[in-house]
Design a protein around this nucleic acid. Structure first.
Lengths: 238, 238
DNA sequence: GGCTTAATGTCTACGGCGTTGGCATAAGGG
DNA sequence: CCCTTATGCCAACGCCGTAGACATTAAGCC
C-alpha cells in the first residue's frame, strides 16, 4: 500500500507535474487504457505510465493503491461506458439483450484492459449501478424475486465470463499476431479423419465459426430460458 | 525463447540435478501446480520453481519455452485430468453435462493455475481430444453438422469462460482472504433502498446465491436449448 | 573400456519491474 | 504573507524473466 491515497473527491491542490501535466484519476485511467492498446496487456507498468504522463512513476501511487487499484478503476470505467451507451425501452428481453451486448462490446473495445479486469468484482459505483439496473428490469418484468436473482446471477456472470474469454482471444491476436487466429485453419483442419473423425468432418464449419464469439448465441439461449421461467411463474403466481 | 527446447519424447540423457533430482516435464508441471497452490497465482516464478526443484532457475528453460510455455502445459494437464475423470454413457445430454462439469471442476481444483490458463487455447493433444469428444457426442446424438458445431462452440466456450471467471473469484478468496467474499454481505447489503431499491429488496437472496457458481444453471439452460434444436432438426430432416 | 560429442545443468549478468521512504516545493487557507 | 501539508520527485531495495558462456556427464560407438 502507498502512504495514503487521497480520494479524488477530496483533492484540492492540483500541483502540476514538472512537465506541466495536471493529474487526475480520470487522466491516469485514460492514459493507462491507451498504453494497454499500444503495448499489450502486459505493457501497463508504473514506469511507462509515468513516462506517458510526464511524471515520476511513484506519483501514480498518490492516486491509486498500487497498480492493482488502478486496474480496478479501469474495470469500473469500462462498466460505466457500457451503461452510458445503453438505453431502456421497457421491453425486458430487448433491454437485457442490449445491456448484455453493451457490456460485452465495451470490454472487447479494450481487450488488453478487459483481460486484466473482466473477472474481478470491484463493488464500485458504476458496477453496482449495472446490477441495480438488471434487477430492476427483471423485477419490473414480473419475475418473482427468487427468479429475478437467479436470472440476474446467470446474466451478469455470463456477460463477464465471455467478455474475459473473448477479450483474451482478441488480445492474443493483437499481441502474438495471428498465431492463434489460424489455429482452426492449420492445426485443427489438418487432423486426419482416422484419429479425429468428427473434427475432420466439420473442419470447414469449425473454421468459420470459431473465430467469432459464442456470446450472442448463448445469451439468446439464456433469455429463452428466462422467458419460460416467467410464464411458469405467471401460471403459478396469478 | 530459450536456447533450444528438446521435446520430452526425444529426451535421452537424464542428468540429475546437483541435489539429486531427476527432471521431467511432468515433474515440473506438478511442482508448478503445487507452488501455485502455496503461493497464489502470482507466485509461480522461475526462481522459486528452481528452488522447489533443487535446480537452477534457468534449467526450466531447457524444458519449456519460457514460463509461458510452462503455463500452457499446465492448462493441458488440467484439461487432461478433466477428460480422465469422465466416462461416456451414450446418453448425449448426460454425457455433455458430465463433461462440462468435469472441465469446470478440474480447473476449479487449481484456481490459481486456472486463472493463468483457462482463457488460452493451446491446440495441444488433450485439448483436441476434448473437442473431438464433444463433437462426437453431438453428431452421435443426431445433430446435423451445422447444429453440432454451433452447440459445440457454445458448450466449450461456456465451460472455459466460467472456469476462468469462477477460478478468479476462488483464487482471490484464497489470496486476499474474504475481502471479496463478504462483498455481498457488506457493500451490497448496506445499500439504501432509496437509491438502490432492487438490490435492497433482494439483498438476502443475492448474498445466498452470489457466492456459488452460475455455471450449472447456465449449462442446463444451454442443454435445454440444444435439445429443442435437436427435435427441430429431427422434424425437418426426417 | 575408452573416446567423442552433445545434451543438460550451472553460473553470471542484464535490464526491467512494483513499491517505499525521505525530501523539496508550491498551493491554498487563514 | 505565512503555515501547513498535499503533492510531486528522487534514490534505492529486492524481486523478476531470460540469455550466454561454461562445466559436466550420459550415451553411442568402436
Amino acid at each position: 500500500m502507498a502512504k495514503k491515497v487521497v480520494p479524488e473527491a477530496e483533492r484540492r491542490r492540483r500541483r502540476p507535474t514538472r512537465q506541466g501535466q495536471v493529474l487526475s484519476e480520470a487522466l491516469i485511467v485514460e492514459t493507462a487504457l491507451r498504453m494497454l492498446h499500444e503495448h499489450g496487456s502486459a505493457g501497463l507498468t508504473a514506469r511507462r505510465l509515468g513516462a506517458a504522463l510526464g511524471t515520476d512513476p511513484s506519483t501514480v501511487y498518490r492516486y491509486f493503491a498500487g497498480l492493482d487499484g488502478l486496474t480496478r478503476a479501469i474495470g469500473e470505467e469500462l462498466m460505466g461506458r457500457a451503461l452510458d451507451t445503453w438505453r431502456a425501452t421497457g421491453e425486458w428481453r430487448a433491454d437485457l439483450r442490449a445491456l448484455g451486448l453493451a457490456i460485452h462490446a465495451s470490454y472487447l473495445a479494450h481487450p488488453q484492459a478487459a483481460v486484466l479486469t473482466a473477472s474481478r468484482v470491484t463493488g464500485r459505483p458504476r458496477e453496482i449501478e449495472v446490477d441495480e439496473t438488471i434487477l430492476g428490469i427483471l423485477r419490473g418484468a414480473g419475475f418473482p424475486d427468487v427468479d429475478a436473482v437467479a436470472v440476474y446471477h446467470a446474466f451478469i456472470d455470463l456477460a463477464l465470463a465471455f467478455a474475459a474469454l473473448d477479450a483474451g482471444a482478441l488480445a492474443l491476436k493483437d499481441e502474438a499476431r495471428e498465431r492463434d487466429e489460424r489455429m482452426w485453419n492449420s492445426t485443427y483442419a489438418r487432423l486426419p479423419a482416422a484419429t479425429h473423425p468428427h473434427i475432420a468432418a466439420t473442419a470447414r464449419l469449425l473454421a468459420e465459426r470459431m473465430n467469432r464469439s459464442a456470446y450472442p448465441t448463448v445469451l439468446e439461449t439464456l433469455l429463452d430460458g428466462a422467458a419460460e421461467r416467467l410464464v411458469g411463474a405467471g401460471r403459478l403466481g396469478g
